[in-house]
Amino acid sequence: MFSTIPIIQAPMAGAQGPELCIAVCEAGGLGSLPCAMLTPQTAREQIAAVRSQTRAPFNVNFFVHKPPRADADIERRWLERLSPYYAEAGLECASEAGPARAPFDDAMCAVVEETRPPVVSFHFGLPEESLLARVKATGAKILSSATTVAEACWLAERGVDAIIAQGREAGGHRGMFLEEDIDAQPGLFALLPQIADAVSIPVIAAGAIADGRGIAAAFMLGAATVQIGTAFLPTPQAKISDLHRAALREARDNATRLTNLYTGRPARGLLTRFMREQGPLNRETPEFPLAAAAAAALRAAFEARGRTDFSPLWAGEAAALAREEDAGELTRRLWREAQELLNPVPMRA
């Protein structure tokens, strides 16, 4: 649909740079560049880096969450709750929890207009109508995530080119924007065929797809393409820490939880001490992304000791299926495995 191999490398803010995107593009998949944690100038530079190394189409991704409502009382109570951890780490409690992820705005829209990436994807809905119109005017294909059929229909009505059906199993932040009830959001293999039946545009399957079996199953259930994230984390092109890589090697089928402790919004990652003791979901966290800075200070302090007590080890439920191999080789292998299942060689009589 967008590339030779119908595999999209999920944009993973904070876990990758241009290198992963380039490797997937060169292998025939659609590489992605996450921009939610970048400044406009850094986004320009990373898009230029991708273009300097590949002529293949690529995707740039943005968050479109509403700016948070600062609440001094909520933030104070949250920091008080975390104060024993700060004491344990030998840190003074942070004075405030500032945002680490910015929503798509006029400045980032200008970057899209200047650089004209072939594909632009959004998480948490779509930007305001005027910004979306400007992105469409560049000729970019527009993608966005849906965690329910209602969200998929909402996106289709607003003219996106394809919908990413994000199942409950997926690693990282939930793309929810109409429904806040986590328990109301289905797993991929329940969600995918229902979205495929409800809309007339292509559907991209996302959530715990880490091998050819998952890809083949997604195609059988109505997907036109798959989006894969966690399987790319162990690749040398990813930018995760050695501690994160080690945790992925030990992951099992029950290793992940949905948590809002790290940013204020539900996201799936490997279970940590922080999740066990304060969550994994806690109603006292500041709004997304205001919780991020308070957790980041603890993460840095404990990682310096070789510990992941407060590290956001984002991963999906199929983390145990991930292998350590080159991202390009992984892209080609996954599609080869899927093709063997989708187009089996007939048995001779």
Rank of each mutant, 00 (worst) to 15 (best):
R307N: 09
R307E: 15
R307D: 15
R307S: 15
T308H: 10
D309A: 07
D309E: 11
F310V: 04
F310C: 10
F310H: 09
F310M: 10
F310G: 08
S311Y: 08
S311P: 03
S311E: 14
P312L: 10
P312W: 06
P312Y: 11
P312I: 02
P312E: 03
P312V: 05
P312H: 07
L313E: 03
L313A: 03
L313Q: 01
W314A: 06
W314K: 06
W314I: 06
A315C: 12
A315N: 10
G316K: 05
G316S: 04
G316P: 02
G316Y: 01
E317L: 14
E317N: 10
E317C: 08
A318C: 06
A318G: 10
A319K: 06
A319N: 09
A319M: 04
A319G: 11
A320F: 13
A320R: 11
A320P: 00
A320K: 10
A320V: 05
A320M: 13
A320E: 14
L321K: 14
L321E: 12
L321T: 08
L321R: 14
A322E: 04
A322F: 09
R323P: 04
R323V: 14
R323C: 12
E324P: 02
E324H: 10
E324R: 13
E324F: 04
E325A: 09
D326H: 09
D326G: 13
D326A: 14
D326C: 05
A327F: 05
A327K: 03
A327T: 05
A327H: 05
A327W: 04
G328Q: 04
G328S: 07
G328I: 01
G328Y: 07
E329V: 01
E329A: 10
E329I: 00
L330N: 09
L330P: 05
L330S: 12
T331H: 02
T331F: 03
T331W: 01
T331D: 01
T331P: 03
T331E: 01
T331S: 03
R332D: 00
R332N: 04
R332F: 03
R333F: 09
R333Q: 15
R333K: 15
L334K: 07
L334G: 01
L334F: 03
L334A: 01
W335Y: 07
W335D: 01
W335M: 02
W335S: 02
W335P: 03
W335N: 02
W335E: 00
W335A: 01
R336W: 00
R336K: 13
R336Q: 14
R336I: 00
R336A: 15
E337Y: 01
A338I: 03
A338H: 06
A338Q: 07
A338M: 08
A338E: 02
A338S: 08
Q339E: 15
Q339R: 12
E340S: 11
E340F: 00
L341N: 10
L341E: 12
L341T: 08
L342W: 08
L342A: 15
L342E: 13
N343S: 13
N343G: 00
P344T: 09
P344H: 12
P344M: 14
P344I: 09
P344A: 14
V345A: 14
V345Q: 15
V345E: 15
P346D: 13
P346G: 11
P346I: 07
P346Y: 06
P346F: 08
M347Y: 04
M347P: 00
M347I: 09
R348N: 12
R348G: 13
R348S: 11
R348Q: 14
R348F: 10
A349T: 08
A349C: 12
A349K: 10
